[in-house]
Design a protein around this nucleic acid. Structure first.
Length: 247
DNA sequence: ATCCCGAGGG
DNA sequence: CCCTCTGGAT
């Protein structure tokens, strides 16, 4: 009858796909998402500069609420001056604070770094341990930091749930949970282990550049047709709580 | 103003 | 659950 084939897609853009129902369908969606992000962000990687597990651990602890770029500006002098955990632990507090000041939270970060280093010396002979349980037990090291170190310095698959990964996982329909551990478990069930580390880097890149917390750029998103949240650009599910922000 | 790959403490 | 720690870029 109609010359134009029936379609459920309006001319304005992709229709929001139905949330995948089965675990199998969700897994397929997640795999497709990861593949598209791998194409979109071939350079996704850990952007902190480091050469050893200790350097990455230190850089990651310092990266809280700061850009990686800024961390990379202070770590050369830091890594040059302090070569091992004992050096951080015994350094004069003011000296460290001076170096870390541009990062923000510099007093807290100095205390954290020195406490962490003291624990490394006392409990691990100054070496950075290579398991999640041991890393998380260190003061100042949370699950996110531990997984960064595992994934990027030890080559152990790690799921890094930061603000971006959590937000994207929820928007993509992978979970409704806010608890990072539950988000981590959801991702673990959806993506093959060997993809975990890089998949998180891609999600983070995508979150920073396209799928922003506020006003995500759905029109420029390669995941549009796979995303159950497509077009919810005016609503921030993390913060709006049902309110629609003014465009 | 808002954002930046958080963690610990109350 | 909330709050705090903190500074620089955009």
């Amino acid at each position: 009858m109609s010359a134009r084939p029936a379609t459920d897609r309006p001319a304005t853009g992709p229709v929001r796909p139905r949330r995948p129902r089965s675990k199998k369908a969700l897994r397929e969606q997640a795999l497709a998402v990861d593949a598209l992000l791998a194409e979109a962000w071939p350079d996704a990687r850990c952007e902190l500069d480091f050469t050893t597990p200790l350097e990455l651990l230190v850089a990651t602890v310092l990266s809280a609420q700061t850009t990686d770029k800024r961390v990379n500006q202070v770590t050369p002098v830091l890594f040059d001056r302090y070569r091992d955990a004992a050096a951080y632990a015994s350094a004069p507090r003011e000296e460290l604070e001076e170096i870390l000041r541009p990062l923000g939270f510099y007093r807290a970060k100095t205390a954290s770094l020195q406490g962490l280093s003291a624990a490394l010396v006392a409990e691990h002979g100054g070496e950075v341990p290579g398991t999640l349980e041991q890393l998380v037990r260190l003061p100042g090291v949370g699950r996110k930091t531990a997984n960064v170190v595992l994934g990027n310095a030890f080559g152990v698959p790690g799921i890094t749930v930061d603000t971006h990964v959590g937000r994207l996982a929820r928007r993509l329909g992978w979970t409704k949970e806010k608890d990072p551990v539950k988000v981590e478990q959801a991702i673990a069930e959806l993506l093959p282990k060997e993809e975990w580390t890089m998949a998180c880097h891609r999600l983070i890149f995508h979150g920073r550049r396209v799928c922003h917390s506020r006003r995500p750029a759905c029109g420029a998103c390669v995941l549009a047709e796979l995303c159950p949240s497509y077009g919810e650009g005016e609503t921030d599910p993390d913060k709006a709580r049902g309110l629609v922000t003014v465009v």
